[in-house]
Design a protein around this nucleic acid. Sequence first.
DNA 1: CTTAAGAGGTTGCACGCGCATCTACATAGT
DNA 2: ACTATGTAGATGCGCGTGCAACCTCTTAAG
Lengths: 159, 159
Amino acid sequence: MTVTAGESKQVVGSEELALWHVVRRAQARVTRALEAELLVEHDLALASYDVLAQLSGAPERRLRMNDLAERVMLSRSGLTRLVDRLQREGLVERAACADDARGLFAVLTDDGAVRLAEATPTYMRGVRAQFLGVLDERELRRCASALTKLFPDPDPDPD
Amino acid sequence: MTVTAGESKQVVGSEELALWHVVRRAQARVTRALEAELLVEHDLALASYDVLAQLSGAPERRLRMNDLAERVMLSRSGLTRLVDRLQREGLVERAACADDARGLFAVLTDDGAVRLAEATPTYMRGVRAQFLGVLDERELRRCASALTKLFPDPDPDPD
DNA sequence: CTTAAGAGGTTGCACGCGCATCTACATAGT
DNA sequence: ACTATGTAGATGCGCGTGCAACCTCTTAAG
């Protein structure tokens, strides 16, 4: 701990903290833009898009609720409600699990697949426009590899 | 648009999208950890910490509500409520603005400064542990510079 | 001075989320 | 078989947040 816990200003690894702040700002910015675009153009929240995308990339287009919750970074209860909504819209179904009687699958319906396909270009465009437009490829690759060291992503990246 | 909006799998600039996903995961992960630590150790939400930090770095330890809202990436109404809470805790005060009768300053109190000083080591430690521990300096600097191009940060970085 | 347009902040409202709790099932341990 | 511990999901509840509407003050236009 290189910190003195002083009155109000201390300097410690400012570059590292700067990166963290930049990441926060970037995330917030892109998330907002993406959310708004998806909502107006496809009436689809970003979290919903995430769910559909994960299911789409999964074998048999189905995932256990628990699994899915982890992948979309939601609490179990949060996912329960979200899947409720998506089910009401007919984009997702629940299916019992043969191996485990208490388990449930969230299954992407055909309608869900269609909505996902419709929304994906918007998603792509949003990310590229908001997030990547300015960066060149080498820098992107460096950032990705650097950050990936820390967070080995469990998603097979269905995009 | 290099996207065909196909059935379920299309590939387009996978590195760029991968970076975006990594950033999202990183942000979520660190945010959660930070929030939890600050909450248990200092009974302070991350958003509250942000407000205190911004005020601490501002001249006269005060900022216009509008300004502050933008810096901490909250809507005006969101900030109104947050400052309400902080004011109830005595960490922040509201002060009228001489130049503009409808304007208000949020002002960091001494108690607020103390709480911030107490919490800052936890914040630092959390960021370093969760976010930076694995990365080496050069990579960090590259990421920072790359991302900063996109998001020129308005914060004077009070840390 | 009067009016119109706009910006700063706050309030009503609804929504999405997490935590704690609960039920149902699973898997030991005896 | 019986009990205990743990896991998968769902529900009650409270909280924080954004959007739209509102009020107040400012600024420009006539």
